[in-house]
Design a protein around this nucleic acid. Structure first.
Lengths: 354, 354
DNA sequence: TTGAAAGCGCTACCAT
DNA sequence: ATGGTAGCGCTTTCAA
């Protein structure tokens, strides 16, 4: 049996409070007594107060939950997510706070979920897809949280650190439109639940259930509407996951068709890189070059010459954690809207023959 | 005040045990009563048992600690570390286990450390540098743990999942030696504590304090000894961190010298990529091309044409977690030695003029 | 500077 | 199927 604080107290002949103080409030007892206690502890094999018991008693844990509403391994697979986490971890480190990465089980019917059982003082929720369920649990638990995007069901206590999705998307779409592109496709991930890879009917950009996709599609639509291209004339492409292969799969059929778009605007860089892969694979069979844009500006984007919108990934993570860990950092309304930049590289060019 | 389980029990007029069962052991009470309890809970705003109290009572937490003996953000910055984590998270996910990433404070003198306070059931320790202190804490706490390398101070209970560092290093060094290289440099990170960037005196490869560096240097030495190049004839280069820039900085001075080595063998791909950067920067000033090798085979290695040793990064993480979460997975001796492969690309070639 | 008392919120065992 | 009892290991008033 592991010894407890009580055992140490007994061994030294003092009370539990004193042993507790020896660990947690060294200034509350004489140095001599403290040494004596610590020595006895070492001798008995007592390694300090039990963290769980301590948390229970104190009422807080010293850990921040990080929730990815997707497979947990996504967090380490997607370059943007990794940089976000790097930012979160930087803030956490400064505070000596641990990070609890919580896997969201595919099976939500399990009686008790990991989110309900997470011993944390708050949550950073990285929004990808359908996190409403998890957010409800977090709210019910009364835990503070920060999301990476404005939520449609946001309450007054909701904090987030995001970007102006619509304006950012518009900036890159304006660039594409200015190059003369009129036959274009937009590409998002899980545009509609359970949709297959490839073209999709979407009545209007606001019909995309996920807020991020909705915001970006709306920005794309704004830009093209301004040059006379109405939404129905735009091809909507669906990817079944946010990765390169899924991006390639999503455009495959339209690239194989006989009148492919002259530009594809993707909702993320990884999807856009997938489009570039598909283009390379289709190669000489294509009637003309296709412009491609991404979103995020991950490291790989530069190497690939991808035109994209840069958003400050690490900063987003740093601030998300700071909103929780450094309350004064939070502005009155709890929102932080970060700047974005259009980054023009070689993946976009004028419409062939225009 | 948040309601407690007791409040719900009072409201429904049952005992605490019954409410507890409603959440944790649904089969222990009638469906009707359970529904009634859950409804009352919702009405009162009770969101389920307090995770901390539950852990205290049950004696386990349902979380695995992951310890990086370095800045926590290193975990998300180094490509190899990220893939390792992806593997860990995959196993964790399968078990519905959370991952607690604990930051190791630079300041180890703080009375109580995050390692002592981490509420976890075990630890995956990613070895980089000086983790002895942290390992002692973990052992003292009596927690099971797995490291990513054999530890010199390993006890009988120590489990690890690693590779044969020495043999792996030898395989790539043999390749370099076979190409005729005799004037070579080896490059490691923090070869000696607090050493500056650049050349270093190291009496013999076994003198490197860090086990991984020691193993790899020894393998390099083996290969060159076999072709008549003794250790003292090999230049030892030190990088002050495991990243590209540090790799470049480490070789800068020897590249600027008038008799640079014909090959540089690095202990990691990121370091090797840094050497490639330095080579590119030195460019035409160099008397002859320099062969470079890495270690790990991260994604960037392929793009850069880097000759390296592949080790299964994700697998390492997956198995490390499995050793903890699936005890039967652990072989009797608690070790798992994973295979490695020499991957020859374009960064190595025959000695010029040989 | 030290100690006694009073729980933190829950679950598991054993009865009924 | 349900309830009573007895802590899990600790910290924090408060009084001495």
């Amino acid at each position: 049996m592991k010894p407890t604080l009580q055992d140490v107290a007994d061994a030294v002949g003092v009370s539990r409070s004193t042993v507790s103080n020896a660990y947690s409030r060294p200034d509350q007892l004489s140095a001599a007594l403290r040494t004596k206690i610590l020595d006895a502890a070492r001798r008995l094999g007592y390694s300090g107060p039990n963290p769980t018991a301590r948390s229970l008693r104190r009422g807080f844990v010293g850990a921040l939950g990080v929730l990815f509403t997707s497979e947990l391994s996504y967090a380490f697979t997607d370059p943007f997510a990794v940089r976000f986490l790097a930012g979160v971890s930087r803030t956490a480190e400064r505070h000596g706070t641990s990070l609890l990465l919580v896997p969201l089980p595919a099976d939500r019917t399990r009686t008790r979920s990991v989110v309900e059982d997470a011993a944390v003082d708050g949550f950073c929720v990285y929004c990808v897809g359908d996190e409403d369920w998890a957010l409800r649990v977090i709210r019910d638990r009364g835990l503070p949280y920060v999301t990476t995007a404005a939520r449609p069901d946001a309450g007054p206590d909701d904090r987030y650190v995001g970007i102006d999705e619509r304006a950012a998307a518009r900036s890159v779409a304006d660039h594409v439109a200015a190059l003369g592109h009129r036959r274009v496709a937009v590409l998002g991930e899980t545009v509609l639940p359970d949709a297959p890879a490839g073209p999709l009917r979407l009545a209007d950009p606001g019909a995309a259930p996920h807020p991020t996709t909705r915001g970006r599609f709306t920005g794309f639509a704004d830009a093209f509407a301004a040059v006379g291209v109405a939404w129905p004339a735009i091809t909507v492409l669906n990817a079944t996951a946010n990765n390169r292969a899924a991006g390639a799969a999503a455009v495959a059929s339209v690239l194989a068709g006989d009148d492919p778009p002259t530009a594809v605007l993707a909702c993320s860089d990884v999807l856009a890189l997938g489009v570039l892969d598909a283009l390379a694979a289709a190669g000489p069979r294509l009637p003309r070059p296709v412009s491609v844009t991404g979103f995020d500006d991950i490291a790989e984007a530069a190497a690939a010459g991808l035109t994209t919108v840069r958003q400050p990934a690490e900063e987003k993570g740093r601030l998300a954690a700071a909103l929780l860990l450094e309350p004064p950092a939070a502005p009155a309304d709890g929102h932080l809207v970060l700047p974005t930049d259009l980054v023009v590289r070689t993946s976009t060019g004028p419409v062939p023959g225009s």
